[in-house]
Write a protein that binds this DNA or RNA. Sequence first.
DNA 1: CGACGTGTAAC
DNA 2: CCTTTTACACGTCG
Length: 345
Amino acid sequence: MEFIGHLDLDAFFARCEELKQPELEGKPVVVCVYTRNSSSGAVSTCNYEARELGIGSGMPLSEAKSRANDETVFLPVDRDFYSRKSRQVMDLLPGEIHQTSVDEAYFRLEEQPVKTAEKIKQEIEEHGLTASIGIAPNKFVAKMASEEDKPDGLTFVEEDDVEEFLEEKPVGDLHGVGSATEEKLNSIGIEDCSDLRAADNAHLAAEFGSDRAASLKARAYGRGSKKFEETEQKQISKIKTMEKNSSNYRAVRKELEEAVEELWNRIERKEKAFQRVTVILIDTDLQTYTRSRKIKTSDTHANLFKEADKLLKEFMEGEDRVLRRIGVRASDLVDVKKQTSLQKF
DNA sequence: CGACGTGTAAC
DNA sequence: CCTTTTACACGTCG
C-alpha cells in the first residue's frame, strides 16, 4: 500500500527566530509584516506562547499589541533565513516531493510509513524544528491528518479508518471549506461531515452549484486526488500598502511605479512573458477592485507599466475612492523561450 | 466562447 | 485600523 505524507512545520517563522536568537525561547514571539510603521501591519506567524495570549496569524498588529504582555517580542519577517532553513528540512524528505509553501510539503511513503515518518521527525528535530505529519491514502486526508495533533504530531489514517476519522469533524475543519462555505452549510443545518454525507444532492447543488456540491460531498467521505502533479505558475503579482491613503491619480501612480518595479524584477528572473495585466486597488474600507486587460504577448518592463498605468488612470477617472493599497499582476504567463522560438516560424 | 470582475480559500 | 501571493470557480456581458 502506498501512502501520502503531509509535513507541516510548527509555528515555522517564529521557531526560526528562536533559532536565530535562543534567548527568545519561552517568550511569546510574533513575526510581523510591517506596512507603514511599527504599529501598522499584520501578524504573519507567532509561537505557541503568543497564541496563549490570543494572538494569531492574520491579526492586525494593533490588536496583537493590545493582547501582548511585556515579555512579548515583535519581529519582522526574514524570508531569506526561512527559505534556507526550509530547504534544509525539505531535503530530508524521501523521493519526489510536492512543496506547497515554505513550511508545507507532500511526499510519498511506500513501506513502513509510520517508522519512516518518525525518522523524518527526528531528523527535523536535529535542525532545531518540530513538525506535524499526517499520513493517509490521499493528499486531502493527509493534510487533514497533519492538522489533527499539532504541534509535533504524527497521525496515520488507514484506508479503512478514513470515514471514521472525518465523521464528527465540523465542516469548517475540512481543507477547502473556509468561513463563507462553513456559514452557508451551517445555515442549512449541516454542521459536521456526517451531516454533509447525508445531505440531499439536489439541495446541495441548488445552494452551491453541482460541481462544488459534488466536491464537498466527496470531501466529507475523505475522497481526494492521489495525484501529485505540480501546476505551472499562471500569474505573478505584487501589492503594497501605500505610504498614505490617496484618491489622487498622480500620487497613486507613483506607488504603482514602485510595485511594477519590484514585480518586474521577479518576472525577469523567471523568463516569462505575459498576456494580461491587472491592477489591484484596495480602498480604505479594504474593498478590493481589479481592472485588467488582455494584451499582445509582452516581456518588457515598459509595457507592464504602460498598461498598468492606463488601467489605474481609467479606474481613478471613473471611481471616486480613497485607496489604501495598490498592486499589479502579470498573468497568462508564457515561457519566453517558447514565445521567441514561435516567432521564428 | 473569451474577456473581465468578484468571491473564496489557503499560505 | 486590517499582509501577501496564488489558484480557481462563477457570474455576466457581448
